[in-house]
Amino acid sequence: MSKVLIIAELDGHKLNASTAKCVTCADQLGAASIDVLVLSDNCNEAATAAAALSRVSLVLQIEAAHNKHPLAAVLAPQIAAVAADYDYVFGPSTTFGKDLMPRVAALLNVGQVSDIMSVESPRSFTRPVYAGNAILTVEVPTGKKIVATVRTASWKEAGTGGNAPIESISPAADIPQHTRFVELKAAHSERPDLQSAKKVISGGRGVGSAENFDIIYKLADKIGAGVGASRAAVDAGYVANDMQVGQTGKIIAPDLYVAIGISGAIQHLTGIKDAGTIVAINKDPEAPIFEIADIGLVGDLFEIVPELEKKLGA
């Protein structure tokens, strides 16, 4: 029977929700065990959270000062050393996993399956290509370790209630000095996290300015939504890069997605295809966003959005 190793993603010292999504994907493999590997300078909080996920068999932790920041070049050799005993090594398809997992795969001399959407068989997976305009089924030849990233928008978080043991390890690995963390400028927000929010309100170029984005924030706060943006809005400097939704930004799957002043380039639509209900508000009735919206409203966003904000929950 096969064994799965999942590389935990941390936000500071907290376990990122993407790890629980990887567990759900791994659960489809019919494997004997699913272990989670936590690398940090202080593993306790994340390891405890990982141990509580259902279906997790064992949590391994490598606690070391050099694991304080998630530098791929530093983490990968440690992961590759642990991976020797495993058939599968999975990580999330977030910027953390996208940066790290190909480095792990190359150290293990194998290719990587990027962005698993579904498990067709223990060695066969579907993944999006061409910005989600085609779905490719790939098979990994037998005898090879399977290194993969899991497309988080395709999977729900595993439940809790587990009680896996936690084991500290220190695998032999050369830690390179050639890559050094300098700083992280995180956009602090009290709003729900874009990637796990149940509701997301996004603004595009049509919003017109950073100041005008206030009406988007107000509406989001009224219904407890996260706030996203199109590439055009980020490029124009209305909002920070971490709010970008789309092929090269975040791929999200909220229950409700409201696109305001977003025309709907295919690169943006890629990021929201898995949303439950898509609402589009745009003055251009021909905007491509209406082709995939479940509910469309044509009109001036500067009239519609304040009215919507006022009437919702009133």
Binding site: V110, G111, Q112, V113, S124, P128, V129, G132, N133, A134, I135, L136, T137, V138, E139, V140, P141, K144, K273, I278, F290, I292, A293, D294, I295, G296, L297, V298, I304, E307, L308, K311
Partner: peptide, 23 residues
């Protein structure tokens, strides 16, 4: 090749939405 591509398919399409005319 590290992986074998076995099948290409179009993505699942979303069902046709509705237009509303007011908030």
């Amino acid at each position: 090749p590290q992986l074998t591509a076995t099948k290409w398919a179009p993505p699942a399409s979303r069902s046709k939405g509705v237009r509303v005319d007011s908030v």
